[in-house]
Design a protein around this nucleic acid. Structure first.
Lengths: 238, 238
DNA sequence: TTAGTTAGATTAACCGGTTAGTTAAAATGT
DNA sequence: ACATTTTAACTAACCGGTTAATCTAACTAA
C-alpha cells in the first residue's frame, strides 16, 4: 500500500498529475492541451500515454487525486476531539482556506459538476462513493450529534451545510466579477481576511443555540487556524 | 432601439444565439461544436459566420445576451415599489428561480468566471460594465437603504449578498454530487421546493432587525412568486 | 432586386494518440 | 567479477482524424 514511493517513476507520475490538475482546472477537459501538460511536467507527450490510457483517464486520475485529498483533509477535521459545533466551524473554515490556497481544486470540481449534470462523466460516481460519501456522512452525522446534545440549532443539517459552504464557494467564484464591478479586489489579503472572519463569525451566530458560545467558539477557531499561504499562485497567462 | 424585430433575419440570429447559449453552457467554449450549434439552430454552418465573426465572437455574444437578460430581470425586481427588505428577499428568490429554470445561464457564467480568472476573456469586462455594475450598485444601495431605515441588520451589504446568493449557487452546483452521495435528488420537485422555502425563510430570519417581520415578509414573497416551470429542460445526451 | 440562406467542397491548423526507437538501470547468467 | 539480457522509463517524429473557418454557386423569400 505504499502510495508515494521515492522511485523516479513515481515522482514523474506525480509531476504529470500535478501538471494535469492545473491544466484541467484552468481550461477544462476539452480546453486542456496534452502538450501543455507534458511540457509543464517537463516530460515528453508520449509519456502521458505510458502512465495513463488516454486524456480522459488522466483527467479522471486528476479528479480522483483532488477529491481524495480534499475528503481526506476534511475527514481529519471532522474527526477532531472537540465539540460537534466547533468541528463544524473548523470544517467550514477549512473549506474557505482550501478555496483560498488551492482554488484550482475547486475549479476542477465545479467544472466537473457541470460536465456531470449534462450527462458525460464516469469519474463522478467513483469519487462520490470513495471520497465524498464518507466525508458527507460524517459531516451530517456531526451536525446531528450537535443538535442532539443541544449545542446546535435544530435545523435540517443539509440546509445548514448549504449556508456554511455556499457562501465560501460563491465568494471565490464571484471574485473576478466583484473586482471589476466594485473598486476593491476580494482576493487581496485585506478583504480576504475580513471575509474569512465574517463568514465564520456569521456561522457561529446562526447555528448555535447559545449565540454567545457560538461567537466565542468562532474566535477560538479563527485563532487556532491561521490564514494559509497561497500555495498555488495564479499565473496570469494573458 | 428595436431589439427584437420580427424580420426573418433577426429570428434566425436569435435562434443561433439560443442554440449557442445552450451548447456553450453544456460544453464550454473549447468543448462546444459549431456544427452542433448550427444544426440545433436548424441553420447552415456558414450562416454562423454570416452573423458572427468567429466562434469566440459568438461566445461573447451569447454571454452578453445572458448577462443582459439576467441583469435586466434583476433590476426590475430591485426597482419594485415595496420595502428594501422585501426587495432583497425577492431578489434572492428570483436568483434561486433563475438557477432552477435557466441553469444553463448560470453554468455559462460560472465557466466564464473560471476562464476569466485564468486570464483569458475580453467579454467579462464588457458585461461587468454594461450589465452587472448597474445591478450590483442597485442591490448594494438597496441593502444600504434598508439598514438606514432600520429594517435590515447593520452588517456589511456585501457579506449579506454572499450569504443570500451563495447558498443558491451551491445548492444547484452540488446537486449532482448530493444525488450520488445521499439517496435523495435535490433537483426533484419536492426537495427543490423545500429548499426554496428554507433559503428564503432563513434569509428572512437573519437579515431583518425584526425577525418576526422578516418571517412574515418571507411568507409574503414566497406566496407572491410561484415556482416557475423548468423552462429549459435538461437533455441527457450520454 | 437584394438580403438572407443553403449546400457542399475545401483548406489549414490543430491536437490526441501512436510508433519505433533510445537510454539507463536492474536482473541474470557464468 | 564481468558480460549479457531484460525491463522500465523515456523521447523524437509522425499520423490521421477533427474542427474552425472559407469559398463558390445556387436558391428563396420579401
Amino acid at each position: 500500500m505504499r502510495k508515494n514511493q521515492h522511485t523516479r517513476a513515481d515522482q514523474t507520475r506525480d509531476r504529470i498529475l500535478r501538471a494535469a490538475i492545473r491544466e484541467f482546472s484552468e481550461h477544462g477537459l476539452a480546453g486542456a492541451r496534452t502538450s501543455a501538460i507534458a511540457s509543464a511536467a517537463r516530460v515528453n507527450k508520449a509519456l502521458l500515454y505510458y502512465y495513463f490510457r488516454d486524456k480522459e483517464a488522466l483527467y479522471t486520475a486528476a479528479l480522483e487525486e483532488v477529491a481524495g485529498k480534499v475528503a481526506g483533509d476534511a475527514i481529519a477535521v471532522l474527526d477532531l476531539g472537540c465539540s460537534p459545533g466547533e468541528r463544524v466551524l473548523r470544517f467550514a473554515l477549512q473549506h474557505f482556506d482550501r478555496n483560498l490556497s488551492h482554488h484550482g481544486f475547486q475549479s476542477l470540481m465545479q467544472q466537473e459538476m457541470v460536465r456531470f449534470r449534462t450527462g458525460q462523466s464516469h469519474a463522478m460516481r467513483i469519487i462520490a462513493k470513495n471520497a465524498f460519501e464518507p466525508m458527507w456522512d460524517r459531516a451530517l452525522g456531526l451536525v446531528h450529534e450537535g443538535i442532539g446534545s443541544g449545542e446546535l440549532c435544530n435545523v435540517d443539517p443539509m440546509q445548514m451545510m448549504y449556508a456554511a459552504l455556499g457562501a465560501n464557494v460563491f465568494y471565490f467564484l464571484s471574485a473576478p466579477m466583484v473586482r471589476l464591478v466594485t473598486s476593491s479586489d476580494p482576493l487581496e489579503p485585506g478583504p480576504m481576511a475580513e471575509r474569512r472572519t465574517a463568514a465564520i463569525e456569521y456561522l457561529g451566530q446562526t447555528i448555535f443555540t447559545d449565540r454567545r458560545r457560538g461567537a466565542r467558539l468562532a474566535r477560538t477557531v479563527l485563532a487556532a487556524m491561521p490564514i494559509p499561504a497561497n500555495a498555488i499562485p495564479e499565473r496570469k497567462t494573458a
